[in-house]
Computed example of a mutant assay.
Amino acid sequence: MEQKRRKSLTPFYLMAFNLIKTFPSVSRYHRMNRKWLIIVTAHLFFHLSVGVDLIVFYRISQVALETIGVTLLKIMNMITIILWALANQVTSQTNVTDISSANILAQQKTISENSYLVLTCSTFGKKKQIQVTVYLCKGDLWIEKKQQKQDRYETTFTIHRVGLHHSGNYSCVYSTRDDLPPKVTKKREPIEIVVISNFLPADISVAAPSDVHEGDDVAFRCIVSGPLQTLGECQLIHSYLMRNETILQVQAFNVPGMEANFIIEGAVVRDSGHYSCVVLPSKCIQEGEKTLYGNNAVLVEVKETLIFRLIASFRVIALMILLGLGLCLWWINKQGIRT
């Protein structure tokens, strides 16, 4: 047993010897005790490499100093700090190797806003019959963890009511440890999740003269600048023409052409107001269905024309004449009954 221990300490003797040689100012008295210093340093290397903490390490150095001599205090304290830093590096490298990558599966890689994101981490063919902790990662950080039982190989994570910030690369790792640091450096194969917005403001313009009169047709053009992501590669999605924040018309948004067109036929005064357009990328139009919604708003003011004003006046006059005739007939009929 002692021979095995000495054999395991051999590389630490060499490390301690090389370290102590770097101190040229060691006095003659110190050089006489170099053998003991090397032995103690090697043992400190050995104990530190197997996980001894700084406090225990410092106590060991104090005992060694009392044995060798108090005059070596500065050198040993310096060695203590160096070896402690070295042990932390070795420990962190050991922790990294304790992480393994897992497969990740998704029911849908493109989902709509406010829906559910379901991700499954699989350790099938990778994990031994042991209980591990599975970590769901987004980018280089793990965001959720669950314990996986010995007889299970799949762990499901569900994110409720996803938002646009949930878009990104997701992956899975597992470990026997339950306290991994936030950043995961283990190489893994991610999948990309894209969250589609339910409402996308669009730009609207009016293809008409500045003065719109009653009876004129008013045409609107609704466009989206930049790339448009749709759910399920929809070619037709919903778009709505709105007036004063009220849905007025529903139309199909042409994805290849990146536009939708709306027309108000025979505009009247009550059609005046602020118009805007909004697109719904997450809602596809089914076959036989024609339905669609703004970024900016345009003001349309429909002015009355003379002919429409005369027609309206004639209607009022005709209504008053009819009302007067009705009253006269009623009065005459009433007088005839009395006589």
Rank of each mutant, 00 (worst) to 15 (best):
residue 321 I to E: 03
residue 88 N to Y: 04
residue 272 S to T: 12
residue 251 Q to I: 10
residue 120 T to K: 07
residue 186 K to L: 06
residue 274 H to P: 02
residue 211 D to N: 10
residue 251 Q to R: 10
residue 197 S to K: 14
residue 141 L to M: 14
residue 225 S to V: 14
residue 301 E to G: 01
residue 54 L to A: 15
residue 329 L to M: 15
residue 158 T to G: 00
residue 260 A to D: 06
residue 305 T to F: 00
residue 123 T to C: 01
residue 248 L to Y: 06
residue 6 R to K: 06
residue 323 L to F: 12
residue 176 T to G: 10
residue 8 S to H: 05
residue 295 N to K: 15
residue 339 T to G: 06
residue 295 N to R: 13
residue 2 E to K: 13
residue 62 Q to F: 09
residue 140 D to S: 03
residue 181 P to F: 09
residue 222 C to Y: 05
residue 198 N to Q: 14
residue 221 R to W: 00
residue 265 E to I: 11
residue 167 S to R: 08
residue 286 Q to C: 10
residue 7 K to G: 06
residue 312 A to N: 08
residue 10 T to N: 09
residue 122 S to V: 00
residue 113 E to G: 01
residue 289 E to L: 05
residue 229 Q to E: 10
residue 264 I to L: 12
residue 52 V to A: 13
residue 221 R to A: 03
residue 125 G to N: 04
residue 132 V to Q: 00
residue 297 A to M: 10
residue 179 D to S: 02
residue 248 L to A: 07
residue 320 M to Q: 13
residue 67 T to V: 03
residue 226 G to N: 13
residue 269 V to L: 12
residue 18 N to Y: 11
residue 329 L to E: 10
residue 300 V to L: 04
residue 24 P to W: 12
residue 251 Q to F: 05
residue 295 N to W: 09
residue 20 I to S: 12
residue 24 P to Q: 07
residue 203 D to V: 04
residue 270 R to K: 15
residue 304 E to M: 15
residue 11 P to R: 02
residue 123 T to W: 01
residue 224 V to M: 12
residue 333 N to F: 05
residue 332 I to G: 15
residue 55 I to D: 08
residue 105 L to M: 11
residue 204 I to N: 03
residue 250 V to H: 11
residue 261 N to V: 10
residue 309 R to A: 15
residue 246 T to V: 08
residue 127 K to G: 00
residue 152 R to G: 03
residue 39 I to Q: 11
residue 164 L to I: 15
residue 138 K to W: 00
residue 182 P to S: 14
residue 288 G to Y: 11
residue 330 W to T: 03
residue 201 P to G: 08
residue 37 L to S: 07
residue 120 T to W: 00
residue 56 V to Q: 13
residue 123 T to L: 04
residue 19 L to A: 07
residue 321 I to N: 05
residue 197 S to R: 12
residue 72 L to S: 06
residue 79 I to G: 01
residue 136 L to D: 03
residue 187 K to V: 10
residue 4 K to R: 14
residue 94 T to L: 15
residue 223 I to Q: 15
residue 233 E to H: 09
residue 109 K to F: 03
residue 338 R to V: 12
residue 201 P to F: 01
residue 12 F to W: 12
residue 331 W to A: 14
residue 194 V to C: 07
residue 224 V to R: 07
residue 187 K to L: 05
residue 36 W to D: 09
residue 304 E to F: 06
residue 60 I to T: 15
residue 247 I to C: 10
residue 265 E to F: 08
residue 173 V to L: 10
residue 120 T to A: 04
residue 291 T to E: 13
residue 87 A to K: 14
residue 111 I to L: 06
residue 135 Y to A: 04
residue 206 V to I: 08
residue 265 E to N: 11
residue 230 T to M: 09
residue 105 L to Y: 11
residue 75 I to A: 05
residue 205 S to K: 14
residue 127 K to C: 00
residue 271 D to K: 13
residue 291 T to F: 13
